[in-house]
């Protein structure tokens, strides 16, 4: 019992919110492409480049905001290249997405070596990380208040974005047009809505949020860049998007689940469990969630019982 209490406490909730933020941001980015009918497997690469250039920008501009902006710009450029190939040149979206993921992985390693002369990671005192915001009133509300206070701005932003993205998708003209593009392109084209333009816009929106997610990774709680530091979060986002069909609220719950698994695995590491085993936790959760969701949707073979049959008959009579 004591062990369980040490694992499951308020700190774990705080850690969950923190680890949820990057997956949530990148998944919310993906809602745009998902709703526009693009299967965007390139989220991972966009996020990784965002993280790398955020560090670079932070060193150059000596400000966290500058770092975030440059990180976002980099990932928007990649998103633009992605939609150029997929929408304008009609290339296969999975192939392009995978190619950009591989490119992001290689490019960040190469640039790290070229610029810093190191391998694997960029650690430097020159990197300016994001400040933590102590919410003045809430902080004084006891343990619960402390749990909700003291995060970086991007954590608050990520949860606020759930509502913003929902508002854009379901209440604005551009959101409506993006959804129609994904659901029934023929209807959009017949009314003079350019589906290509909508898909480009969706991809760029996605780039912005993926870049923010990357910046959170490298300038949030640890101020460094490490090789492949997105570590599959972009792919988890793809999984979340498939479960949630791009609905922002369902995306939130999916991401909280993954964030929790992430936080739990971090916590378990402090208990001296083999880190190799512990690091599999988020992926096991992914698999379990996939199984649970598809298990419910599996094709069922129905048999009518004597009871239902008599019901059918009675209704007919």
């Amino acid at each position: 019992m004591e062990v369980l209490e040490r694992i499951f406490n308020i700190a774990l909730i705080a850690a969950t919110l923190r680890t949820t933020a990057p997956i949530l941001l990148v998944s919310l980015g993906g809602t745009f492409t998902t709703k526009a009918g693009i299967f965007n497997i390139g989220l991972e690469g966009q996020m990784l480049l965002g993280a790398f250039f955020a560090v670079l920008g932070s060193i150059w501009t000596q400000s966290a905001l500058g770092g975030v902006l440059i990180g976002v710009t980099a990932s928007v450029v990649v998103a633009g290249i992605f939609s150029l190939f997929v929408v304008t040149l009609r290339a296969n979206e999975v192939v392009v997405g995978l190619a950009l993921n591989l490119l992001a992985g290689g490019l960040t390693i190469t640039l790290t070596k070229a610029i810093f002369g190191t391998r694997g990671s960029i650690v430097s005192g020159d990197i300016v990380g994001m400040p933590r915001i102590e919410l003045p009133v809430i902080h004084d509300l006891g343990p619960l208040g402390q749990m909700l206070s003291g995060f970086t701005p991007l954590v608050y932003l990520s949860f606020a974005m759930v509502f913003v993205v929902w508002l854009i998708l379901y209440r604005t003209r551009i959101g409506l047009h993006i959804r129609v593009t994904g659901e029934k392109p023929a209807a959009a084209e017949a009314l003079g809505i350019s589906t290509a333009a909508m898909q480009h816009i969706a991809s760029l929106f996605c780039g912005v949020l993926a870049g923010l997610a990357g910046a959170h990774l490298s300038l949030g709680y640890i101020t460094m860049f490490a090789e492949n530091m997105s570590s599959g979060r972009g792919f988890m986002a793809v999984a979340v998007l498939i479960f949630s069909n791009g609905d922002p609220v369902r995306v939130l719950f999916g991401c909280l689940l993954f964030g929790f698994a992430d936080a739990l695995s971090l916590r378990l590491q402090t208990f001296g469990l083999s880190s190799y085993l512990v690091l599999t936790v988020p992926y096991l959760v992914t698999l379990a969630a996939l199984f649970a969701l598809t298990y419910r949707q599996r094709p069922k073979l129905f048999r009518e019982t004597a009871e239902t049959l008599s019901l059918i008959r009675r209704r007919q009579a």
Binding site: L176, R179, V180, E183, K184, A186, A187, A190, L191
Partner: peptide
């Protein structure tokens, strides 16, 4: 002939 309506709207 084939309606161009969006079912979810």
């Amino acid at each position: 002939q084939h309606f161009k309506l969006v079912p979810s709207l």
